[in-house]
């Protein structure tokens, strides 16, 4: 047993090689790795058609908006902050790209104006959280409520219209067999990873995550970094919202309610915790894929919305329990 576990995690050997340590080391991989393995095995056994390429492409395309909002959430969570307004941003993006005013604009403006709005929302969040030092939970919760109210007010409660051609192309278009949305998602995730690893900003993010007070004392611009992180998170969430609106194609005012939950689930599954956790992005990418996979598998198994909620909650609870166990152990 110990031999197989060792071989599955190729790392430099440690002096202490008792069984508990090795189990712990396996548990140290992002939880999403196990969820994906479990899901693939389960679907081979129960719904083999899900593992075929066309279905995998469907799952990946659905994973794209999730993946982008997970990137947004992991950025803020790594700096010990949180963004609960991503659901509101999704709703606003959906409204903006499907209302007739914006669909009549040229493609660049139809994309740029909603993105500018998302960045502005991130900046407002950042201002309150970094500059005024208000609680991120309360600020972003309030922002989410304001955005939902704003969209309901502007649309008088009914969905506006359908998405323009360009946004629609981003959501459902394909290059070969690969969906455009997947290319955007993976491309940006990799860029983000490189940026976080290579730039000074990335260093600041890690340092603030470990200890904001110590970071401030050693001259790290905590306020500026936190502000910029929220702006970046707003942009990622905005793009995710646009991709989802393009995928659905129509206006909806119910779209973002569970996005907050899904984004946090993705971050936890990706092995990232408040203030740190594992740095590499592949956990988060797999997590978005795993979440989209879970929803498809449960739909294939004809499980209803309530069952999906329960599974989602259990998965997050278990993953975060394991994550905090690891943190304590180290």
């Amino acid at each position: 047993m110990t031999v197989t576990e060792m071989s599955s995690v190729p790392r430099e050997p440690r002096k202490n090689t008792n069984t508990l340590h090795q189990i712990g080391r396996v548990l140290n991989l992002p939880p999403s790795v196990y969820v994906v393995i479990g899901l693939v095995l389960l679907s081979i056994y129960m719904v083999p058609v899900l593992t075929k390429t066309p279905f995998q492409m469907v799952i990946l395309r659905q994973a794209a908006p999730i993946g982008l909002v997970v990137c947004a959430q992991l950025l803020v969570m790594r700096t010990k902050s949180i963004d609960l307004s991503v659901g509101g941003i999704f709703i606003l993006m959906n409204y903006m790209v499907t209302s007739s005013f914006f669909t009549s604009l040229n493609p660049v403006a139809a994309l740029a104006v909603p993105m500018a709005a998302a960045i502005l929302i991130g900046a407002i969040n950042g201002f309150f959280i970094a500059r005024l030092r208000a609680s991120a939970v309360v600020v972003t919760l309030a922002m989410g409520a304001i955005l939902l109210g704003l969209v309901l007010f502007l649309s008088s409660g009914r969905p506006p219209g359908s998405a323009g051609d360009f946004v629609r192309f981003l959501g459902v278009g394909k290059v070969g067999i690969i969906p455009v949305a997947v290319i955007i998602w993976l491309g940006l995730a990799v860029l983000l990873e490189i940026f976080l690893r290579r730039s000074i900003y990335g260093r600041f993010v890690s340092v603030i995550g470990s200890n904001p007070t110590a970071a401030g004392l050693s001259g790290v611009p905590v306020e500026k970094t936190l502000f910029f992180t929220h702006v970046l998170a707003g942009a990622f969430a905005g793009l995710g919202g646009i991709l989802l609106a393009g995928y659905i194609g129509m206006g909806s005012v119910k779209i973002g309610t569970d996005i907050v939950m899904i984004s946090i689930a993705g971050v936890i599954l990706g092995g990232i915790t408040f203030g740190g956790g594992r740095k590499s992005i592949y956990g988060a990418i797999l997590a978005a894929y795993a979440l989209a996979y879970i929803f498809n598998l449960m739909t294939a198994l004809k499980l209803g919305e309530p069952a999906k909620l329960i599974v989602q909650g259990v998965v997050i609870f278990a993953a975060s329990a394991i994550a905090s166990y690891n943190l304590k152990r180290n």
Partner: peptide, 19 residues
């Protein structure tokens, strides 16, 4: 367990709503 309050209660919230 040391799970952050928001994450802990958000997950119980989803489970309870599902039930």
């Amino acid at each position: 367990l040391g799970i952050h309050p928001i994450i802990a209660t958000l997950s119980t919230s989803t489970i309870v709503t599902g039930i």
